[in-house]
């Protein structure tokens, strides 16, 4: 039983039943005449509630007049259009009706209960790819400008000194305002300062050793890569609110697809046109 209750199609049918039931009851007592538009208490309450739901307050008289006007206008045109058979195979009507149907299935997601911790954990375990962190790098860098005198020798000399454990020379600290120390930075952040080439080679550098020079838009860099944090899955506890949002979003998507697939089963799809590529045709065969 529990499984049946969770089935989107059941929700869908239930909702459909309620909607049609409402209209059935609403129209039961009304003697429909083709050229009259009747706004009885039921109809009026319906329009009023629609308005109140939207604006969260009572309408004033002007506003009541406005929504009645709007309803009548719509109804008149609607009836005329039906009489003229304008709805038949009209692309706009089709689109609006299918949108309306989709909107109904979207509303189903509002019926989803907030997930329990277990459900959330199961979702997290099943979709770990969604919660993967990109790799992060911790490194030091020392910058040399391309037009410095005796550039190659200077770089070599500084590199040797750094590898002996000497400090970064004072005139190269925060050179061009670029920090020497970069801690746990992701590729996108590194790209913003150093450009794509530097960012792309960083991953393949040997660790715990001054190496280089590596070029960037600023000049040549010596780099000491001290830590690479590989792409890892974020901790459940740390990102729980985010997982909740994700759960909601993914469930919604899933449910929309499920409703569509279930409805599709009711129809036999026949692609008789010989202009449709055969691979695409095949994909519609069950």
């Amino acid at each position: 039983m529990k499984n049946i209750l969770k089935e989107p199609l059941v929700h869908f049918l239930l909702l459909g039943f309620l909607i049609f039931g409402y209209y059935y009851l609403k129209n039961k007592d009304t003697k429909l005449e083709d050229n009259s538009i009747i706004i009885d208490n039921t109809e009026y309450d319906y329009l009023l509630n629609l308005w109140k739901n939207q604006w969260q307050r009572e309408p004033n008289e002007q506003e009541i007049k406005a929504f009645l006007d709007q309803y009548l206008r719509q109804e008149v045109f609607y009836k005329e259009a039906l009489a003229m058979n304008l709805d038949h195979n009209d692309i706009i009507v089709k689109r609006r009706l299918s949108q309306k149907m989709e909107a109904v299935s979207n509303d189903l997601s509002a019926m989803i209960q907030p997930p329990t911790d277990e459900e959330l954990k199961a979702f997290y375990n099943k979709n770990k790819d969604l919660f993967k962190l990109p790799p992060a790098y911790t490194f030091h860098q020392v910058l040399f400008l391309n037009d410095e005198n005796n550039l190659d020798n200077t770089i070599k000399e500084v590199k040797d000194n750094l590898n002996k454990g000497l400090e970064i020379p004072k005139d190269r600290k925060t050179k061009l305002s670029i920090p020497n120390v970069w801690t746990s930075k992701e590729a996108t952040d590194i790209y913003k300062t150093f450009g794509d080439y530097f960012t792309s080679v960083l991953d393949s550098l040997p660790q715990k050793k001054w190496v280089g020079p590596i070029p960037s838009g600023f000049g040549q860099h010596l780099v000491y890569l001290s830590k690479k944090e590989l792409s890892q899955i974020a901790n459940f506890k740390d990102i729980k609110p985010y997982i909740e949002k994700e759960y909601q979003y993914q469930t919604e998507l899933e449910m929309q697809n499920k409703v569509f697939e279930d409805l599709m089963k009711k129809y036999q799809i026949k692609l008789t046109s010989d202009k449709i590529p055969s691979d695409i045709k095949k994909s519609y065969q069950n």
């Binding site: 911790t138 030091h140 454990g165 400090e167 970064i168 120390v181 801690t183 746990s184 715990k208 001290s226």
Partner: peptide
């Protein structure tokens, strides 16, 4: 984030 100065601390 913990700052680690493994090389040439400053």
């Amino acid at each position: 984030k913990e700052e680690k100065h493994e090389a040439n601390p400053e």
